[in-house]
Design a protein around this nucleic acid. Structure first.
Length: 356
DNA sequence: GCCATTTGACCTAT
DNA sequence: ATAGGTCAAATGGC
């Protein structure tokens, strides 16, 4: 067993023990069911991770060349930058990492040639239902550059790229496609990472924003707590959030939120410290899509989510089928380098967006 | 005029 | 050959 595996194992077991201790204090009637379920889920998650690491090491020592890839975490670790959402992934996690590297290598290739497939892909599925007062976005501006009828799909697929593509060489793209099975469900696939800053603060000068990107990249951990706090606060106020895992079965984890109208369900665990993560699959409600009486223009509306996570722009005509979700972290460097000592720390934040 | 969307054409992977 | 992804001219709104 490699050192980092051992360390991770220790971390997970330690975390599990700490969580169990916390749970002990929440056995009484003063604590909410959500709190207890949340802690239980985290404990289970920690032990799942630990077991996986053990199995991983075991298979490796047995000479089985194919270790469970780090994407095992995608099944179990919502903080996994590779798949927090748990929705079907187009790429194995490790391949995604390689692809990211390949993408960086090809960033200079601005030719008309199609760039290599799926350097880094995230898959997000979102639907909205009543409860959100307006579209939430992922903090980035997207420009639609294509639409294509997909074989076997009832609805066309829309292609979006970051509006900063030319300005800041931001190569993030996303694809939005309405689900055949449930037209209220939209599948959003993100490709590439944002190298630009979300327009979270219109008062910031570009240079300030650039500096902010750098600062955030360098001090991502410093912001986790505040982002998480803001996120939680807004969740309490606004959202009902669900996620699904890869097999589309529920692995609920109820956050200890006090608002009766607020519920967060996600596969795996959650802690505020994790909410700087890039991948969070959020289900919001569909009825919102029917509402055209938005309080604010869908163009560049600032989200009330979190710290007003930036803007998203889209056309009026496209509001019916475009969503924005923050599969890519708006703030953090999306280059995913698993920190073996603390994988949780690499979990970036994700904010859902929605365009009715 | 600028910017975003639309949409047909083109390119690439399979 | 076909499907998916992207480009870029045309178009429209502000």
């Amino acid at each position: 067993m490699e050192n980092w595996e051992q360390q991770t194992l220790i971390n997970e077991l330690t975390q599990g023990m700490e969580l169990a201790k916390q749970l002990r204090f929440h056995v009484g009637p003063s604590s909410t069911t959500e709190t207890r379920e949340y802690l239980v889920q985290k404990i289970l998650s920690s032990y799942d991770k630990a077991l996986l690491i053990l199995n991983w090491s075991k298979s490796a020592s047995n000479g089985q060349g194919t270790r469970p890839q780090p994407n095992v975490a995608s099944n179990l670790l919502p903080e996994s930058p590779c798949s927090f959402d748990g929705s079907p992934r187009s790429e194995p996690c490790d391949k995604g990492i390689k692809d990211q590297l390949q993408q960086q290598e090809h960033l200079t290739d601005l030719s008309k040639k199609r760039k290599p497939q799926a350097k880094w892909t995230d898959h997000v599925r979102i639907y909205c239902e009543s409860g959100l007062e307006g579209p939430h976005d992922d903090g980035f501006s997207w420009r639609k550059y294509g639409q294509k009828d997909i074989l076997g799909a009832r609805y066309p697929r829309s292609y979006y790229r970051c509006t900063n593509r030319n300005i800041k060489h931001c190569w993030a793209t996303k694809q939005v496609q309405r689900s055949d099975e449930d037209p209220t469900v939209f599948e959003i696939t993100y490709k590439g990472k944002h190298t630009c800053l979300p327009e979270c603060d219109p008062n910031l000068e570009p240079t300030q924003q650039d500096g902010e990107v750098q600062r955030l990249n360098n001090n991502a951990n410093d912001h986790k707590q505040s982002q998480a706090d803001d996120f939680l606060q807004n969740l309490k106020n606004n959202l009902k959030v669900n996620t699904e895992d890869m097999s589309n079965k529920e692995m609920p984890c109820h956050l200890p939120l006090t608002s009766a109208s607020t519920e967060i369900t996600m596969n795996g665990n959650y802690s505020p410290a994790n909410f700087d993560g890039s991948l969070m699959q959020i289900f919001t409600s569909p009825a919102m899509s029917a509402s055209n009486s938005l309080p604010v223009s869908p163009f560049r509306q600032y989200s009330s989510f979190g710290r007003g996570f930036g803007t998203v722009c889209c056309s009026e005509s496209d509001r019916s089928d475009m969503f924005s979700s923050n599969a890519n972290s708006p703030y953090l460097d999306l280059d995913f380098t698993p920190d073996p000592a603390d994988p949780d720390l690499t979990f970036p934040f994700n904010v859902p967006g929605f365009f009715p």
